[in-house]
Amino acid sequence: MNMQSKWTQIAILVALIVILPVFFPSGYYYRVGALIFVNALSVVGLVILIGFAGQISLGHAGFAGIGAFSCALLPVHFGLHPAIAVLVGALLSALIAGMIGRPILRLQGYYLAVATLGFGVLMSMVLTNERELTGGPDGMRVADLGLREVLRDMGLKLSGGEFWYAMCGLVLVIGVWVALNLYNSPTGRAMRALHGSEVAARTVGIDVASKKLQAFVISAIYASVAGSLLALQNGFITPDVAGFMHSIEMVTMTVLGGVGSILGAILGAAILTLLPQVLTVFAEYEQLVLGAVMILVMIFLPRGLLPSIAAKLRGRGE
């Protein structure tokens, strides 16, 4: 697979984020943009897990839930600043991913999928049922980040939408930069090697278990930060964020765009975030269209949108 040079990809991404607002007719588009960036961030994490290391997770919304509720709970109960809460949430997600990852990642294929799914469902149940703490299905409010006010005092006046567009865009660029660095690092190469063949990877001296665990932990951190950003942006959070459907959505975005391609994953996130907005007129058929898109992509572009199209353009086909 051809990963164009790191800086080209980052430049394309930054250019898009900066230039697109010129064409925004109203503030609502900033909101959609910010949502795309948040989704893209968790999807980039999944690219590391699925695309690099070749492991599957159907429970990553669980980590998004940890990140989101860290932002909601820590400021209330421990008086932490929301920005610190994002970091604590990410750390917590990493710890939990590290703990459950070791036994879970011994499994493969369907078994791994089901085990991660179990984790996701568990998180969602805890968040839903621990009513005293999390507010249950009615959710709870999330403290304001406060950064917008700081910027305003410095003379930079941004609307809520503009601020979150910039903030999420910035975090996404950092996330992509980290992921691209990882891709070309020894660790990244080891992950990709075990993706190709675990036996071969082990033979050349790669610690397969620890590389898998690293990929799992890193992707959990991505999901957690994305969850935090979502919570802070919405100012309100319910356990839906940790729900099973959210996990599926993340994997769908990853697969749609192309599991091995970071820009592709962002494209996948963009399409699946935009589609429900475009299809509001046909709201009842939304799921149907989503399903049809997925099936068509899997049949005709099995490597995902971006890699397949890129290959076709180069005239090499599948």
């Binding site: 909101r31 939408g161 919405n234 309100f236 839906d240 964020v241």
Partner: peptide, 9 residues
Amino acid sequence: PNKARTFAT
């Protein structure tokens, strides 16, 4: 709730 906020916006 996430969708609701987007639609409200």
